[in-house]
């Protein structure tokens, strides 16, 4: 399903990066850095993740000089069980709340829902947020954090950070022009250490449908940015697009997971992942590039492996999803 929007604008964004992100190449593009430790003054990693999101939304409101009552809707999601970080952060705000989950594609799902509310004039201002914390994700999906089991080189490293995007019907520099909702794609891969391979077919399907539905070529966009395929997933996507759909993405394509970190120097294996990986790169770095007119059209494609550790142990393969959101610079 592909939609076009007429009056959905990104008024502003606020991004917070953690320790590893502040050692990466995008450090200066984040609005704030929490780079002292992984606890941010809280007692547990889960509480730290809640604080990260709570602070992020408060700072965004302050940045645009808005009251809570000016916001019609808050949409948020994260990787914790019961999307706990979003739920517990949202209780601090008197804003109607929708909690969503699409694993690492959560920001895409949020933007599509928010854009539809704003486009249909049911909401004037809507905040779409997402948060992820490396340590809670490790605890949730893998071994205890201090265990430090050796990992495969294809596995990715969950980003610590949070991003909030304020959608509005008031005209501003960057608009959301179109979107395509992804299908759940499962090619039968069961390797939890190779999420890039799991998610690449989902990204390929969404990108292909988005481009054909709108009768566009990949070069229409200055950049097609996937969420967190990582170093190997990125190569897989380029090959897969060529083989399966006869499209050459290599000129305009990049992956957020390989941009957010310095892959040669940081201990992040195949690159970054997590719902905040795509959001930090897309709305911390590229949003600012768009505001400065350095880049005009971006297809933002956050990718998510929507799997449950329980079902993985029960030998089920891993389903994946990707949503596409077209961002364009307006003439304002």
């Amino acid at each position: 399903m592909t939609n076009k929007y007429n009056n959905v604008y990104i008024k502003n964004t606020y991004t917070i990066g953690g320790i590893y992100e502040s050692q990466g190449p995008l450090k200066k593009y984040f609005d704030r850095l929490y780079d002292q430790n992984m606890y941010f003054g809280e007692k547990s990693f889960e509480k730290a993740e809640i604080k990260l999101l709570k602070d992020n939304i408060s700072y965004l409101l302050k940045k645009v000089n808005f009251q809570e009552s000016d916001i019609d809707l808050l949409i948020s999601g994260d990787l914790e069980n019961q999307i706990a970080a979003s739920d517990y952060a949202a209780r601090n705000f008197s804003i109607p709340f929708l909690g969503i989950f699409n694993a690492c594609a959560t920001s895409g799902e949020g933007l599509i829902i928010g854009a539809n509310f704003v486009d249909s004039k049911r909401a004037k201002n809507c905040i779409v947020s997402t948060v992820s914390h490396n340590m809670t994700a490790e605890k949730q999906f893998r071994n205890p954090t201090e265990y430090g089991a050796p990992k495969h080189k294809t596995s990715t490293f969950t980003v610590t950070g949070s991003a909030s995007i304020l959608l509005s019907n008031e005209k501003s520099k960057v608009k959301i022009e179109s979107s395509t909702i992804g299908k759940v794609i499962d090619l039968g891969i069961t390797d939890v250490n190779h999420m890039g391979a799991v998610m690449a077919p989902a990204a390929a399907d969404t990108i292909y449908r988005h481009l054909t539905n709108l009768k566009r070529k990949p070069e229409y966009y200055d950049l097609i940015l996937t969420g967190d395929l990582g170093f190997y997933g990125k190569k897989i996507l380029i090959d897969y697009m060529k083989e399966q759909y006869h499209m050459d993405l290599s000129k305009v394509y990049d992956d957020a997971g390989t941009i957010i970190y310095n892959l040669d120097k940081q201990p992040v294996l195949a690159g970054g992942s997590g719902p905040c990986c795509s959001a930090l790169v897309g709305f911390g770095y590229y949003f600012k590039q768009m505001e400065e007119n350095k880049i005009k059209k971006i297809l933002y494609v956050p990718t998510g492996a929507i799997f449950s550790p329980t079902l993985t142990f029960q030998k089920e393969s891993i389903p994946a999803i990707a949503h596409a959101i077209g961002l364009e610079v307006t003439n304002k």
Binding site: K43, S44, K139, N143, P144, T145, E146, Y147, G148
Partner: peptide
């Protein structure tokens, strides 16, 4: 190590 790391993880 596996026991200590698990204990640390869940002490909260």
């Amino acid at each position: 190590h596996s026991m200590t790391s698990a204990a640390l993880e869940y002490k909260n």
